[in-house]
């Protein structure tokens, strides 16, 4: 038996320091991202950094589904594709600026989330994984075969959000930061707690009045919106999209970022996403062995730190 209240005092100090930790870590990450173009600003480096930021947004979106709610989604790239194609089609066909497509993208991704989620979320774990994988492929193959999406060659001439790559990079960093903070805030709210209750024990969650089906659907829709908005950024960055950008490999890499960083941990998935997107670039010296080295490094990390690089801690600060 522990003595009453004995654990409270040290917990207080530890918790306070952790709060600062995570606040400062987030701010430090943002400052780092904002200063990076002053260190290296070649077009190539800017494009890599912008891609990494977009990848962070994808990972933070998938983290709500997989990390918070415990739903294994192997077809997350479907929402990325839906967002990118919606804004791409609207901006090229109707001549809308990219920003104006955002409300439509949100509506379409919510619908996509419901359409994909409603029939699949009655399934548990591995079955859900298989079906989401299937949906991811369906979206890609549909885009490959429709005329409106430009078929295999995709859509060209999508207007960018900004004139110069540097401005676009800064815009991306700001949007992604807001998205990451938003995902983290949702995760700590009543809704986010309900996601975790579902992940931990669906029956107990139901017994406490959590409508597990609706809550899972909410996680799925939130993930879809985050993925779709990341798709808008992606379309704006490349100005051209094609089905080749939305393969299963992409879904697997986002999931890898979430697992590598630490499922359910906001700083974790940010770090995980940056590692996954930058590591292949850092490994360019290995030439032909680049992806071999990438794979080996990932395996080593998972063996040494199975809980992730920056795992979620359940211990909470006392208020």
């Amino acid at each position: 038996m522990t003595a009453p209240g004995a654990t409270r005092a040290p917990a207080l100090g530890r918790a306070a320091s952790r709060l600062l930790d995570s606040r400062w870590a987030g701010l430090a990450g943002l400052v780092l991202a904002l200063l990076a173009p002053f260190v290296i600003a070649t077009p190539y480096a800017l494009s890599v950094m912008t891609s990494a930021a977009i990848f962070v947004m994808l990972a933070s979106g998938l983290n709500m589904v997989v990390g918070f709610c415990g739903l294994l989604d192997l077809g997350y790239v479907a929402f990325f594709a839906v967002g990118a194609y919606t804004s791409g089609v609207l901006s090229t066909r109707l001549g809308l600026p990219l920003l104006a497509t955002v409300p439509v993208v949100i509506v379409v991704t919510v619908i996509a989330g419901v359409v994909i989620g409603a029939p699949t979320l009655r399934l548990r774990s591995d079955y859900l994984a298989i079906v989401t994988l299937g949906f991811g492929e369906i979206i890609r193959i549909t885009a490959n075969n429709l005329d409106v999406t430009g078929g295999p060659s995709g859509i060209y001439g999508i207007p960018s959000l900004a004139t110069s790559p540097v401005v676009f990079y800064y815009l991306t960093v700001v949007i992604v930061s807001v998205a990451v903070i938003g995902a983290s805030r949702l995760g700590r709210s009543r809704l986010g707690r309900a996601w975790r209750f579902v992940r931990e024990d669906e029956d107990a969650a139901e017994a406490m009045g959590v409508h597990t089906y609706k809550i899972k659907l909410a996680a799925y829709i939130a993930g879809a919106v985050w993925g779709g908005l990341a798709g808008v950024l992606f379309a704006g960055q490349l100005s051209a999209i094609s089905p080749g950008s939305f393969t299963f490999l992409q879904s697997a890499l986002v999931l890898m970022a979430v697992v590598l960083g630490g499922m359910g941990s906001t700083p974790g998935v940010v770090v995980g996403a940056i590692v996954i997107s930058l590591l292949p670039e850092v490994l360019r010296d290995f030439a032909g062995y680049r992806f071999f080295a990438f794979g080996v490094l990932l395996i080593i990390v998972m063996l040494v730190r199975p809980q992730g690089l920056w795992p979620h801690r359940s211990r909470e600060a006392s208020s």
């Binding site: 209750f197 931990e200 959590v210």
Partner: peptide
């Protein structure tokens, strides 16, 4: 049937 990996307070918040 507690939510084992969540804090005790979070369990009661359910």
């Amino acid at each position: 049937r507690l939510f084992g990996e969540m804090s005790v307070l979070d369990n009661v918040r359910a």
